[in-house]
Amino acid sequence: MTNSALIIGDNSEVILHFDLKLEDGSAADSTRVNNKPAKMVMGDGSLTKNFEDCLRGLTIGDKKAFKLAADDAFGMPNPDNIYHVDRTKFTADTPVEEGMIIAFAQPDGSELPGVIRSVAGHSVTVDFNHPLAGQDVTFDVEIIDVKNAGAD
Rank of each mutant, 00 (worst) to 15 (best):
M1T: 06
A5F: 15
A5V: 10
L6P: 00
I7R: 15
I8V: 13
I8F: 07
D10L: 14
N11Y: 11
V14R: 01
V14T: 00
L16E: 04
L16S: 01
L20V: 07
K21V: 14
K21H: 12
E23S: 15
G25K: 00
A27V: 08
A28E: 10
D29C: 05
D29V: 05
T31L: 07
R32P: 00
N34T: 13
N34S: 09
N35H: 10
N35F: 06
K36I: 15
K36Y: 10
K36D: 14
A38P: 00
K39Q: 06
M40Q: 08
M40I: 11
M42S: 02
D44T: 10
S46T: 10
S46D: 12
T48Q: 10
T48D: 02
K49I: 07
N50T: 00
N50S: 02
F51D: 00
C54K: 07
L55W: 12
L55T: 02
G57I: 06
L58N: 06
L58C: 12
T59H: 14
T59N: 06
I60N: 05
D62N: 13
K63D: 14
A65L: 12
A65D: 15
F66W: 04
K67I: 08
A69F: 00
A70H: 03
D71R: 03
D71Y: 03
D71A: 15
A73K: 05
F74P: 05
G75C: 05
M76D: 14
M76P: 02
P77N: 01
N78L: 11
P79R: 06
P79W: 02
N81C: 10
N81A: 05
N81K: 03
I82P: 00
Y83C: 03
V85E: 12
D86I: 06
D86M: 06
K89W: 13
A92H: 02
A92E: 15
D93N: 14
P95W: 02
V96G: 01
E97W: 01
G99N: 11
G99F: 07
M100V: 03
I101N: 05
I102P: 00
A103S: 12
F104M: 04
Q106D: 11
P107C: 12
G109L: 02
G109F: 08
E111H: 11
L112Q: 08
G114S: 03
G114Y: 07
V115Y: 01
V115S: 13
V115F: 02
V115C: 10
I116A: 02
I116D: 05
R117V: 09
R117F: 09
S118W: 03
S118Y: 01
S118C: 03
S118Q: 04
V119D: 08
V119N: 02
G121S: 07
S123Q: 11
V124I: 08
V124M: 03
V124H: 09
V124P: 09
T125G: 06
T125M: 15
T125V: 14
D127P: 07
N129S: 08
H130D: 15
L132G: 05
A133E: 09
A133N: 03
V137G: 00
T138K: 14
I143H: 03
I143F: 13
N148H: 10
A149Y: 07
A149G: 02
A151C: 12
D152Y: 12
D152W: 09
